[in-house]
Structures are given as structure tokens and as C-alpha cells.
Design a protein around this nucleic acid. Structure first.
Lengths: 337, 337
DNA sequence: AAATGTAGTGAACACGTGTTCATGTAACGG
DNA sequence: CCGTTACATGAACACGTGTTCACTACATTT
């Protein structure tokens, strides 16, 4: 029926609308630019023809303009199997929509290759938000060269012009230790995640420092991978080696939940009378009736709103001095400590 | 120290590199285009200068080209609080990276406004992948007008040129009912999610049809919101009204887990001897030792690979006939039925 | 040596838009 | 009726790139 066009049909352009409506291409552009002076009747006509032809101004071409922004913001997220990462990603995205920005999401698995980040920098992003764990600091250099604002969250990066939003991990760990000791627990263990992440290192340091200050020594320092299964296996291993333990602080909630399951099922422990367990982050699952996990809240709403504030200000004043925001952790007392 | 520039500094351009390297701008473009003929020494020189100045070809400008693609693919995801949605999103994104496409993610909360989708269509997307729940079919019309391929997953959309990948929900529900009856359960209830979603309707229909075929009647048909808390409250309400129930089929895993918790904690039920519970989807949490949920697997790997296949083929042959792929569900037998 | 081919090169065009600029027209005040 | 002002208008430019098109210099073949 239709002529057998070989090439892929292209999107309707302003030129075609202009031709169909009997006006200049400039007028079409103006019809879609709120401030522009244009006859009301002509504007209606143009919008009607556009509707009919299915015309939408090409945001990509508009972003090419001198003053134009692409309105694209890349987010490097951590492993989405991690509930904390997926929950905060959802909140962050909604905040960006409200700002009229579109999130291009990278990462989402354990190893986010740096090459992937460099590739997306080919786009003239309005900003890059770095939330995943282990990314080299050289990313900051590349962003600086390309004049792309960089906002780091979940860790502190000490580089020129980089804004940071991070939880006060040491303080959070201290809170956990204090609360465990207040319940009379003294043989405390630490279950960390991937040891090369600064968040893990800081939580571990906070744990050790608070414990030392209270006059105790760690019963054990163990590492896993931030996953439920990892926590399950780690506590199984620890208790199989006859380590004396009455309290466990985990570097995130998933491992804490896994550890609780292992304690109950593999060793018949009663939580918290036999063993107290405290997590970190306060993901949604932590308050499920099945768990009622005591944990340290790593406040997502505050984190997201600070990221968005820094982003807005940075876009407004590119040369502004960079900031580092420390989010205050809060101990959430439930039933496992 | 630096001169107080008022305007935002712009990205380094090919023109500047050409000037600095003493070559034509064309040469710079060629240096970054693998197939192009260019003297080897000159190419090295250009790449070196680019490295030094921090030049990267602007992908946005390149995408404007006649044959160029933007390499942007929008994904409309469902509520990311939903674990199934966040897990499949992660897998889908990784698949897109492998294809050299960048995901622009929309949605992530219960109500994805259609206006949001229309706005992102301003970009010349290579494709739009629709995975959220309640989106009007008019999106298909808009995509068609803009020549943007549309791939729908999680539901079937009967529109010209739209490819679909969907789980066989009716078959899945039938599997669940069959397995419950095989365990001697006859007073079965259905706990649905948001009733306006087709996935919920199909699962409900499958439940009723299989039950009728076996000669039984539904003990109750209840609806909630696909959340853990919703499932908890729903079963609490049902059992409080003295409904006789020995088996419950839930439209997703989260509600099933909530129902299990409610049954155990609020009514002291033993699962599965007092009450069998079967979920749908098979999210990661379902196999946690704490739950060991029997469920119907809504296979993510198959779904994602089919989406990617359809995407590849559609980009290759825009005029190809549209397909609807039905993914076969599989019953996963664990400890709750 | 002449004819033919080949790789390299820069100018010019195309992509689709927002905006400036000069021009034209209508409204308004005197 | 004239001078001023305000507004509407289309042509032209800018944005940053990939690609085509002549054209040159050189190697190869006849």
C-alpha cells in the first residue's frame, strides 16, 4: 500500500509544521516558547497542526543551544540488589523529575566499570551524581575537564569543586555500640561489607573506637558482601568457630537480617536475649513485623534533599565553593537489641 | 586569581582541538570515527591534544545527524518499592549497557503520570520500554507519531507496531491453584493487588477458572496494593471476619510475605499446615531462609532477553511485524504450601 | 612516460532547534 | 494628521558534530 521506503522514517520537524501551517519556522519555534511574542490566533493554529502531525520540539537539538541545558543528569547507583540503593534511587529520581531533569542511570550491579562512566560523559550532562561504591577519583578529573558538576553521595571525595553528601558513619557506629552496651552486651562483633568501601571502613572505625572508649575489645571483626546470604553465612561461620558473642553490629541491614536468620535457624538462638543484632541504613524491610530490626537510620529523605539542593545551587552558581554535608544518623530502637 | 567569568564555561569543542593541533576540524572528527581515512601520525597527535584539553565528542550533537541514533532508551518502571520491579530494572539496564544504549528511567513510584512520559518523548529516543502498571494506551499513539519504537512488558497492549513481552499470568495462577489442591487444600482465597492492572486481572481470572474447573468455589476474593504491609493487613482483615481458609494465592510475593507474617503473629497459624500461602514473581527475598516462599516464577532473565531481542530487531527493521511474547511461568516449590 | 588508481585532506553541507536582528505594521497619544 | 511606541514577523546565525564532495599528492600499472 505505502511506498516501500527503505530508510527509517524520521521525526516530524518544525520546518514541516511551518510549511503545513503556512507560517515561518521561527513562528513554530515561538509557539512552543512561552515568553516569545506571537499572535494568539497563529499560535493556536500552529499548535493544532503540530498536534495533528505529531510534532514535538526535539529536546536534543534544543540542548545544543548556547544557553541551553540538556536536562540530563546521570546517576551512578550501587548494586540494586541492595535495598538501600534501590530505595534511595527511587526518591532521587522523583526529585529530579520535579526539577525538570531526566535521570540516566548507570551501575546497578556490584562492579560499575569506570569505562562506562567515561562513556556517558560523552553527553553534555547537567550533572553527574555518584552514588555507587567503588569508583576511582579520576572521575572527578574528567568531570572537571568537561565542566560537568559532580555530586558524590555515600562517601566523601576530597577534590576541587566536588560536592559531597554523606552519612556520619563513625557517629552511627558509635550509636549502635552505645546502645548495645546499654543493654549489657559486652562481647560485641562487627560484620562488615566490602572492605574497600569507605563507608565500611568508617563504620568499622567507629565501632572499634567506641568499643575501646568503653573499655572493651572486639570479640570478632568479620567481613562479607553486604548481602543477606553473606550475613547468613558469615554468622554461621563465626558461631561454628565457637566465638563468644552476645552482640553483633552489621554494616548494613541486609546482612543483619541474614545473621538473625542464621542465629535462629542454625543455632536456635533467641534474638535479642541470646544475641543482639543491630543493622545500618533502616531499609523498609527492617520494620517488617517478621524482623523488627534495631538499626541506625541513614536518612534517605535528608540525603536526597541535600543532593537536590546542592545540584540546584551548583547549576545556578557554577563557581560556588564546594560543600560537604554530613547527615546525622539516628538510632532506631526496635526488637533485636 | 582566575578572571571572573560570568557565563558558565562551555565544553571543549572539536574546533578548539583542531586549532590547537594545527589541523582541520574534519580531521578531529575523523580521529574519533574508526572507519575514517586519516594519517596515523596525525591521528595520534589529535588524540593526544584531545586528552590534554579534555575533549570528548558531544554525543548529543552526534545524535542529531541524519543516520545518527541518540542511543537513549527510556524505561518506564513500576514502583521501585516493589522488589520485582527493582530487580528486573537492574537486569534490563545491564542489558542495555551491553547494547551501547543508555537508560533514561521514568516512574519508580505508584502513579507514573502520563504527562511525564509525554515530556520525555521530546527526546529522540531510540525506543521506549514500558514496564510500569497503569499507563494509558494513548502512549502508543504518541510513540507511533514520533516514530519511537514501543516495547511493552508486564502487560499486553494491542496496538499497531507495539511489541509485547508478558508472563502468562493465567497459566501461572492455574499452576498455583493446582499445587494447592494437590496438597489437599480446598478453601482457597485470592489476594490481589491494584485491581485496575491487567496483570492482576489475569491472575485473578486464572485463579477462578482453575478453581471452578476443579469443582470448588473461591473462599474469598480480596484486593490490596501489592505491598507487604497491604498483605499483612488484608489477611488480618480476612481472618478477623471468620472466613474459613486453608490456602491463599497472592498476586505477588510481597503480599504473600506480609500475609504469612500476619497469619503467624496475629493468629498463631502454622504455615503451611494451618494455612498454605503461594506468591507470584519469585523475588530474591522469597528464598530467604526466613520465608522459603512457594511461588510462581515470573522469569526475569527470559523477559529481559526477549525485550532486548525485540529491541535489536526493531531497530534493525523498523517495519517488521510486531510480536507478542508470552513467558512461561514455573511453579517453585518451597516451604509454604 | 602516460594513465590509472588510492589515500589523505579541508571546505561545505546537513541535522533541528532557540534567539537575535532588522524590518514592517498597527496602535496610541498629541 | 504626524510621531512615537509597541509588537509581530521572517531571515539569518549559532550550537557541535558526521559525512559528502571535490581536489591534491603520490603510488602503481600499462
Amino acid at each position: 500500500m505505502t511506498t516501500g521506503k527503505e530508510s527509517k522514517p524520521r521525526r516530524v520537524t518544525a520546518k514541516q509544521v511551518a510549511q503545513a501551517a503556512g507560517v515561518s519556522r521561527s513562528a513554530v519555534s515561538r509557539a512552543f516558547t512561552p515568553g516569545s511574542p506571537l499572535d494568539e490566533g497563529k499560535k493556536r493554529k500552529i499548535l493544532q497542526v503540530s498536534e495533528q502531525l505529531g510534532y514535538r520540539p526535539n529536546a536534543l537539538a534544543a540542548g545544543l543551544q548556547s544557553r541551553g541545558r540538556s536536562n540530563l543528569v546521570a546517576i551512578v547507583t550501587g548494586d540494586l540488589v541492595n535495598h538501600y540503593d534501590s530505595e534511595i534511587l527511587a526518591k532521587l529520581m522523583r526529585g529530579l523529575y520535579a526539577m525538570g531533569k531526566w535521570p540516566v542511570v548507570l551501575g546497578g550491579s556490584a562492579e560499575t566499570s569506570e569505562a562506562e562512566i567515561l562513556e556517558v560523559l560523552a553527553y553534555p550532562l547537567d550533572a553527574l551524581i555518584l552514588r555507587g561504591g567503588s569508583v576511582d577519583e579520576s572521575v572527578a578529573t574528567h568531570c572537571a575537564k568537561l565542566n560537568i558538576p559532580l555530586i558524590v553521595s555515600g562517601r566523601v571525595m576530597d577534590a576541587e569543586g566536588v560536592d559531597c553528601v554523606c552519612c556520619d558513619n563513625m557517629r552511627g557506629a558509635e550509636l549502635a555500640v552505645t546502645q548495645l552496651i546499654a543493654r549489657g552486651k559486652t562481647r560485641l562483633g562487627y560484620l562488615g561489607g566490602l572492605a574497600h568501601l569507605s563507608s565500611d571502613q568508617e563504620r568499622k572505625a567507629g565501632f572499634e573506637s567506641a568499643l575501646t572508649k568503653a573499655g572493651f575489645k572486639p570479640a570478632i571483626l568479620e567481613h562479607s558482601d553486604f548481602s543477606y546470604e553473606g550475613g547468613y553465612e558469615a554468622l554461621t561461620g563465626i558461631l561454628s568457630n565457637d566465638v563468644e558473642l552476645d552482640g553483633l553490629f552489621c554494616a548494613n541491614d541486609a546482612m543483619a537480617l541474614g545473621a538473625i536468620a542464621a542465629g535462629r535457624q542454625q543455632f536456635g538462638l533467641s534474638i535479642p536475649s541470646d544475641l543482639s543484632v543491630v543493622g545500618f541504613d533502616d531499609i523498609a524491610i527492617a520494620q517488617w513485623p517478621s524482623f523488627q530490626l534495631s538499626t541506625v537510620r541513614n536518612d534517605m529523605d535528608q540525603t536526597v534533599s541535600q543532593i537536590l539542593r546542592l545540584l540546584t545551587e551548583r547549576l545556578d552558581q557554577p563557581e560556588k565553593a564546594s560543600e560537604t554535608i554530613l547527615i546525622k544518623p539516628e538510632f532506631i530502637s526496635r526488637g533485636t537489641h
